[in-house]
Design a binder for these strands. Structure first.
Length: 403
DNA sequence: TCTGGGGTCCTTAGGCTG
DNA sequence: TCTGCAGCCTAAGGACCC
């Protein structure tokens, strides 16, 4: 039985930039870059900026070099998130089966919407008109049978277009493309395949799947095989969490925060202050989400961009700032960079703190104290800080050591 | 005075245990 | 007591996504 071409991938065009300049007609025809401040990367660039070669993901430094006259602005999430939520409601007025990927894109299964709204192409055009009329933002839509092909189609429909890749035309339309165009094949995998002489999607399709598995690993090899034949996932997971946690799902995996320092740092005390700030932020987010985690991990990026991570499992899961911070300090010191016999510690560019192995917190009432559980004063202090920051904002309370 | 921050998933290696 | 093995867990790192 052949499955219908019923998946839509809707992707806003330069979403961050489109929203940020929507109410600024004076900026519509000048290059605008969102993000890309000091040591940052470009989150989005409008089409006038792209004409200069500015791309999202590029360093702000490089973007400003390519287009010195561009207007650079930081992203305003208080503006972006409500627009994103409103657009999701527009999607849901067409179908209840919506899988949110991120702030600016979603998959829609329109199988049940044909009687009301017509074929997928007609639905795509209606969605585009409504989003433009209601939110003033252009978007592109890809239509296909599977998730990866719909995503590929929307990418190729940009800007402001619609593209359908039906199964019977998949080979003709997709096999000539570079294998790096596939959703899930990044720079690293693309390079490995190219070195093997596998340049196009069709090249990989002709390659024996068991050899792919041997070379790329069982999982990636099998997955790549499904991608090059367009036979990956066809069912959506409605209410998907979204990569940035703005979705409605309840991600169980991990929560973390990392920060690139304004300047590289060698001093242990400076790093401890940053670890404390990050630990406070992560623990507060855990408490707000009613989660506790079993493992604390730190990430260190040195000035040469070498990045390492170290992690440690805790005896008891926690959402307490002090627990997260203490473990982070243990992990940092275990690197040995600040031992007494080390004359010049390495320069650190970025530090991160992450709590993994998340689960729902057991309510306090009826919870048994673990043997040897320490002073409950820190959780009380955390709750007091949460209450104060909830009322007066994040600058209201700050630990003495952060001042 | 180049290269963010938030995640997920997979692979690999080594230790432990039965 | 030693060895080999399978299975599980932990830790580290890499790749990928937006």
């Amino acid at each position: 039985m052949t499955q219908p071409t019923n998946l839509l991938h809707v992707d806003m065009d330069a979403f961050y930039a489109s929203v940020m300049i929507r109410d600024r007609p004076d900026l519509h025809h000048v290059p605008v870059i969102v993000g890309g401040g000091h040591r940052g990367v470009v989150l989005a660039a409008n089409y006038p900026a792209r004409a200069y070669g500015v791309r999202s993901g590029m360093s702000g430094y490089e973007a400003r070099r390519l287009c010195p006259k561009a207007v650079v602005m930081p992203p305003d999430f208080e503006l972006l998130v409500p627009v994103s939520k409103a657009i999701r409601e527009t999607f849901r007025s067409f179908t209840p089966v919506v899988e949110v990927v991120s702030l600016d894109e979603a998959f829609l299964d329109v199988r049940g919407a044909a009687r009301l709204f017509g074929p997928p192409e007609a639905i795509a055009q209606r969605i585009r008109s409504r989003i433009r009329a209601e939110h003033g933002i252009p978007c592109s839509v890809g239509i296909a049978r599977s998730v990866s092909v719909a995503k590929l189609a929307s990418r190729r429909a940009k800007p402001d277009g619609v593209l359908t890749i039906p199964p019977e035309r998949f080979v003709e339309m997709v096999h000539p493309l570079d294998v790096g165009e596939l959703y899930g094949v990044g720079e690293s995998t693309r390079e490995r395949l190219h070195k093997l002489g596998l340049i196009t999607v069709g090249d990989v399709a002709k390659f024996p799947v068991d050899q792919l598995r041997r070379m790329l690993g069982r999982h990636l090899g099998g997955h790549l095989h499904s991608l090059v034949w367009g036979t990956d996932r066809t069912e959506l997971h409605p209410g998907g969490a979204g990569t940035w946690g703005f979705g409605e799902g309840t991600p169980e995996g991990s929560m973390g925060s990392q920060h690139t320092l304004a300047a590289d740092v060698r001093d242990r005390d400076d790093l401890l202050r940053e670890l404390l700030r990050l630990s406070s932020r992560v623990a507060a987010r855990l408490r707000a989400a009613d989660k506790i985690g079993t493992t604390v991990a730190i990430t260190i990026r040195y000035s040469d961009f070498r990045t390492i991570s170290r992690s440690r499992k805790l005896p008891e899961p926690t959402d307490v700032t002090q627990d997260v911070y203490d473990t982070a300090v243990l992990l940092l010191d275990a690197l040995g960079h600040w031992a007494p016999d080390v004359s010049r510690p390495p320069a650190v560019r970025l530090v991160g703190v992450r709590v993994e192995g998340l689960r729902r917190r057991v309510p306090e009432a009826g919870r048994q104290l673990a043997l040897g559980e320490r002073d409950p004063g820190w959780p009380d202090a955390d709750r007091a800080i949460d209450r104060a920051t909830g009322r007066f904002g994040h600058t209201a309370v700050r630990r003495g050591s952060l001042l």
